[in-house]
Simulated scan of single mutants.
Amino acid sequence: MPQNPYLAIERGEPGRIGWRIHYFDEIDSTQEAARELAASGADQGTLVIAEQQTAGRGRMGRTWHSPSGVNLYTTIILRPPIPLADVPRMSLVAGVAAAEALER
Rank of each mutant, 00 (worst) to 15 (best):
P2W: 08
Q3K: 06
N4H: 10
P5H: 00
Y6Q: 04
L7S: 14
L7W: 15
L7R: 15
A8D: 13
A8M: 08
A8Y: 09
A8K: 12
I9T: 14
E10C: 05
E10H: 04
R11G: 13
R11L: 12
G12N: 03
E13W: 14
P14E: 04
G15M: 10
R16Y: 14
I17T: 12
G18C: 04
G18A: 06
W19T: 03
I21K: 03
Y23S: 01
F24Q: 06
D25H: 14
I27Q: 02
I27M: 01
T30K: 01
T30Y: 03
T30N: 02
Q31M: 12
E32M: 07
E32A: 14
E32S: 09
A33N: 08
A34Q: 01
A34D: 01
L37P: 13
A39Y: 01
A39K: 05
A39R: 04
S40H: 12
S40V: 08
G41C: 03
G41N: 04
A42H: 06
A42Y: 04
A42S: 06
D43G: 09
D43M: 11
G45L: 10
G45T: 13
T46M: 01
T46W: 01
T46R: 00
L47Q: 02
V48N: 00
I49A: 02
I49V: 12
A50L: 04
Q52Y: 10
Q53L: 05
A55W: 02
A55Q: 05
A55E: 09
G58P: 03
G58F: 07
R59K: 10
R59S: 12
M60G: 15
M60R: 12
M60I: 11
M60Q: 15
M60T: 10
G61S: 02
G61D: 01
R62C: 08
W64E: 07
W64M: 08
W64C: 15
W64Y: 06
H65M: 13
H65F: 14
S66Y: 04
S66N: 04
S68P: 10
G69A: 12
G69M: 08
V70L: 14
N71T: 11
N71V: 15
L72C: 09
Y73I: 05
T74K: 09
T75W: 01
T75R: 01
L78R: 08
R79M: 09
R79G: 08
R79E: 09
R79C: 11
R79Q: 13
P80G: 06
P80I: 04
P80C: 13
A85L: 11
A85Q: 15
V87F: 01
V87L: 07
M90N: 07
M90E: 07
S91E: 15
L92S: 12
L92H: 14
L92C: 15
V93P: 01
G95Y: 10
A97E: 04
A97G: 03
A98R: 15
A99Y: 05
A101M: 06
A101W: 13
A101Q: 13
L102P: 00
E103V: 08
E103A: 11
E103S: 10
